[in-house]
Write a protein that binds this DNA or RNA. Sequence first.
DNA 1: TCAATCCGTATC
DNA 2: ATACGGATTGAC
Length: 647
Amino acid sequence: MARVAVDVTPAHLDRPFDYAVPPEFDAAAQPGVRVTVRFSGRRVRGFLLERCSVSEHAGALSPLLAVVSPEQVLTPEIARLARAVADRWAGTLPDVLRLAVPPRHARVEREEGAAQAEGAVAAPAPARWQPYRGGPALLNALQDGRPVRAVWTTLPGTDWAAALADAVTAAASGGGGAVVVVPDARDVARCQAALEAVLPAGTVVALTADLGPAERYRRFLLLSRGRRRVVVGTRAAAFAPVRDLALCAVWDDGDDSLAEPRAPYPHARDVLLLRAHQAGCAMLLGGHVPSVEGYGLLATQWAQPVAGDRDVVRRYAPRVEVAGSDTALARDEAARSARLPTLAFDAVRRALAASGPVLVQVPRRGYQAALACIRCRVPARCAACAGPLQRPGAGATLACAWCGRAAVDWRCQECGADGVRAAVSGDRRTAEELGRAFPEVPVLRSGGEQVLDTVPTEDGPLLVVATPGAEPSAPGGYGAVLLLDAWSPLGRPDLRAAEDALRRWCAAAALARPAVRGGEVVLVGADAGVPAVQALVRWAPAGFVRREAEQRSALGFPPATRMAAVEGAPGPVAALVADVLTLAEVPRGLEVLGPVPVDEQTERTLLRAPRERGAELAAVLALAQRRRSAGRAGEAVRVRLDPVAIG
DNA sequence: TCAATCCGTATC
DNA sequence: ATACGGATTGAC
């Protein structure tokens, strides 16, 4: 007989069901294959989890209707991981399996697979980890196959993908595999190139969401069939069926795109943490700025820090200056129209004169457009708290986006004008205006549909305007990096706004040359007193994140606590929460926050438990969902654990 | 006394 | 979810 995970929706059916295996399917009915079975009268698809000789089930067993294909796509390791992920996020196994196993593509399955890689893995070049305290030790541990766990704060101006590739090489030197998860397709391409540069041909496979069904399944099969043993990919790659796992790595784990938007909303970093724990393998979290969650792993000593000492950081970091919004604009007319203060304008001019490329980071389109003085274009700010002013609705009074105070008789601090206009902060316009300020310098744009990987290597002055995450790297480093509209991301009413802003700034600023080689970074339109700005100026991301973590801890925010957002129609949300509270297993110290209205027909209640009771919180939520789905079927209630954004 | 309907329950 | 059965209710 066989134990089958059937692909059905209701939460209370999330458990294995036993089926008899007809003799003709006996050979093909191996663990991990897709099957079809009759379930409650219907044909449904499922995965064969395991063969067994006895069944708990008292009644007669239905036979398997078919083995869809003999391909063992759900390896036991991934089945176990998927179960743990479902439990951790109070979701169901079928939901997780939809994220973990790509849809079958029969033609691809019949293709002749690529040959297995041959050749030994070269010994890694330790040079890239030499500057870090704990770097050489990390590399040695990986080389020796020890399950080290590290939070790596990347030095600015260094090739992080190459360093990551060295770590993977070390871990793979014993024949094991590695999973590397990065935020987006461009990072995948970059890591793939770095990995292929140091690993034997036929070792690496890249997985991204944009591959299309056939190619996605083809690459998945290379891993599940053991033809490749290293994968680099976006968030879904956390589930890639790599065998003999030696290392899980995640780059820039504070990036929102690592959070899966489909139920049960797992975060790739935490999936990999579970996976590394289950596999007993090494785990590496890297980034220019550690995430607050990463800091939490250091604070509990679960992981060790790998970072440059102060004097090392000073050698690598660019010089960072702040041009506040009250700074005078450059006198040059073109610079004025590009909203450039003198400090920034001069830095650009110096860098271009030295033949260096210049990077200009502009906030992503779609950010709330800032309001600025109608005459001199200095951003309109709140008199009380210096937050950006907004117009809450058409014809409404100006109000501060931070503190909410109405700005009744607003006047520009700079020139005294009393009107505002939308200060367009789009890359197109900035590109045009910078071009006008430096007419003989070519301007490249990177962002949206057109993302550049690197800027041309031939020397010569060049301006690159990019949105966050789309900054191309420059082979010798940028002479200057401008971070425009720096207050804009800080204005988001979000728990992570400051952390996110620092991450984006550091990602761009890290592409500058070090200060000793003349590299300059200018943060335009920032308040020098803001901690995130201070952290950039001093290139001290660890201190910022520690402080951020301590503040969140003091306020009872994640990750010091475990939160669950329960969202849906008011009745069902209240019913589910009430049900949770009746359960005997309800975690001690559980707090109920809300409900608060989200929109017309939706409301949200937050449940908060001490971090160490997170598993209990997930368990009672899952149990309540099961009870709910078993009884009167009402409207669905969405449960998100550790939601990335609340609100 | 039979049938349409409602609720509760199991789904291997 | 969805199909089935036992109880329930209503009409001949």
